[in-house]
Amino acid sequence: MGASVKKKKEKKKDFQKPKLKVGKARPKNTNATDTSFAAKSVVFKQQSLSETGRDSNALFQHNLSLLSSKNETQRRDSLAYLTTVCSAQQGSKLPQPPSVIVAKAQPLILDGNLQVRQQVVKLLRSLALEELGSLDSLILYARAGMVHLSKDICATALDVLDWLLSTAPSAVVSSAGGWVKTLRAFQNLLSWHGDANGITTRGVDGKWSNTKSSSNLGGGKLLVHQLTTLSRLLVAGLTRPSLDQEHKAAAEKAASLFPLCHTDAHMLPKKSNPYGYLNLFGASRDMESEVYEDPEQRAEVFNDLGMSEAFQYGVAEAKKEAGEVGRAAALVAKALKLADGA
């Protein structure tokens, strides 16, 4: 069989009628699934198809859920929405309690986007502090942000801490770890280890390393911010309520409830987790993460851990700086005197 014959056959093949079989193809099963599509993802044009405008309650919920969105503009926008709603309905009831809002919003303190972080601070400021509940995790986030590698996030975290200190100073300093750990963080940030300490650590290792002053006074604006926040923290932690005021308040209360005494002890506690300081169910705490309830304890710990001297030394160094840094340091020095007085 030559090549030409083969070709002819092939040509013929095109014109041959296909032989059809008798009968029909088997019908498809009723439960067959069509798997012929090739798309790997499903894209929606709109996220919601409902025609009617949503009521404010649903919208609030929706925005709250958008806080964990991957898109930063979306996060920012929903934060802005929440802020406006919260500041508008200051007195009246919010669709969700502030504690829920804070729980959702607090991770955004560490967000990478500057606008998102600014918006978070705004949102927090718009909330009524009385209904916030436990502040532990918020303080933890603030502390995590304070020591963040990024300076911008540090600044935001300090803003948050400032706000906390201005609105609920006692809650901050008497939370678990809120006193010593926060102070430690400041100590590290400012490199206030006291002079002797710094020299020995450098001497141990036989190697050369960067020489470093015993206080970290390189930064400008951030340093001022840190110092002022520190001074506020110290003031909040070490000021004790004046005895006169206390007595007066107690006397007034006793007079109003005259036949009863020690009423507080018999009432339901007003704050959440009232016996938290006993730490009945959590992991055992060390000295740093312990709860220090009153100013005397705090001052004692402050002195015992050797932070007092280190801070004194650091402040003395910082005070020599001119301008804002010096002024801020002076504030810290003033606050430190409270500890001395103890």
């Binding site: 986030y141 995590a144 590698l149 590290n188 940030l189 450098r202």
Partner: peptide
């Protein structure tokens, strides 16, 4: 250079602890 960057490390370590 571990000794020079001790402060930075402590900062990150305390951030780890908070998280």
């Amino acid at each position: 250079d571990p000794t020079s960057y001790q402060d930075e490390f402590i900062n990150q370590y305390s951030q780890y602890q908070s998280l």
